[in-house]
Nucleic acid binder design. Sequence first.
DNA 1: ACGCACATGTAAGCAGTTACATGATTTG
DNA 2: CAAATCATGTAACTGCTTACATGTGCGT
Lengths: 218, 218
Amino acid sequence: MRLSTTSHAILGMLAFRPATAYELAKGMGTNFSYFWPRARSHVLAEVKRLSELGLAAAQSEPLGRRARTVYSLTPAGRLALEAWMATPPTAFGLEIEGLVRVFLAPFGQIDDLTASLEATRAEAATMLGLAGTIVERYMDGTAPAQEHIHVRALLIDFLTHFAQLTEAWATRSLQTVATWDDLSPNGKQEVARETLAAAPRSPAAGAPVETWGATAHT
Amino acid sequence: MRLSTTSHAILGMLAFRPATAYELAKGMGTNFSYFWPRARSHVLAEVKRLSELGLAAAQSEPLGRRARTVYSLTPAGRLALEAWMATPPTAFGLEIEGLVRVFLAPFGQIDDLTASLEATRAEAATMLGLAGTIVERYMDGTAPAQEHIHVRALLIDFLTHFAQLTEAWATRSLQTVATWDDLSPNGKQEVARETLAAAPRSPAAGAPVETWGATAHT
DNA sequence: ACGCACATGTAAGCAGTTACATGATTTG
DNA sequence: CAAATCATGTAACTGCTTACATGTGCGT
């Protein structure tokens, strides 16, 4: 009986209130999509498994000629959730294909690079726009989870700053690339050094030096 | 013959220079771990598949009583890589369990929340420290990929800012939580509103309003 | 000569995705 | 009342991870 983070996210939604499988799947999207995205079908399969394990109770309700299942959290489920909350979180992970494309830029065309950066910028801008709406809802008191504002504010704080950071980065990278004629290193060292000089960094605690962001298999 | 982003990352490393399977796996870690992390064994399996597809050439070299395989990029492989570079990138994805724990904080103890935030803070701090070392290497000209500095600077720009953002967010969240006696909403609205007011946002382009960062299955 | 870190590989299993299929509800 | 959208579910497949196993060379 191994439970994943996704399992606990589902148990957590059930801890707020009982829900149908479909509502859970939808909730996974609206609640977690930006920091724990999962496919709808996977949520359906997982909640079924949770009910088999006795962590969620499934109740079938008829709905026209079709049946729908309402799930709720069992005491065992609540215990599992609370126990998990006390464990340390796993390390965060980013999957940003746009950065892979930057890394491999020398093997493509310069237009490929700008297109990729532009796509990333647009995505971040969309995220920021969404955030604006959400924030308004909370501020005027009409958000659906208004009573959890103190906790949700922390989340929104992170996500909005992330979106802003990403958009700003893509924008200034596009500006830099716009000054290039090709992807060769010629004459581009100067600006690169300035970028690096402006990068935030902590005193480098003499830690084990892994070569990172650099082709190391030399 | 479906190729994943991981496949192309491997083709890309081979485009820099031929390498053994082990070097590729290691390079996956040092080069991509922060924005495209993959297990070592998966890289080994994938490069084998690439050679079966004719995109990489495998050459067996004896090494003591053991054989090791050196891979290099074939012309077909280079074509595949270049073609991929011209396609649009998939959307970025974050997996941040620490944020899931913030979302579900009401079902745990307050100490669970601080522990989780502290773990996230520490992780980001480590990342920043590493970055400091890398930046120094590039600045004094001793980085292994010195000739690619113009492109790598863009990556480092993003990653250092991300680490800084994460550390700063965790720190200020810890400060906020330190003022709480419990996880109930009582008396915490005020500060939450200030946090939200300070969150960056764009004019909310009248976009389709999805409830995000909020329990929506109401 | 021994122990430890580096190098190399395989196998089993699961978490997660894409695609398909169809019933219910709303809306113009 | 037709068309679109919402709600609900299953099946096939695969990318990826964890765990295991063993060879090679270096330092002491």
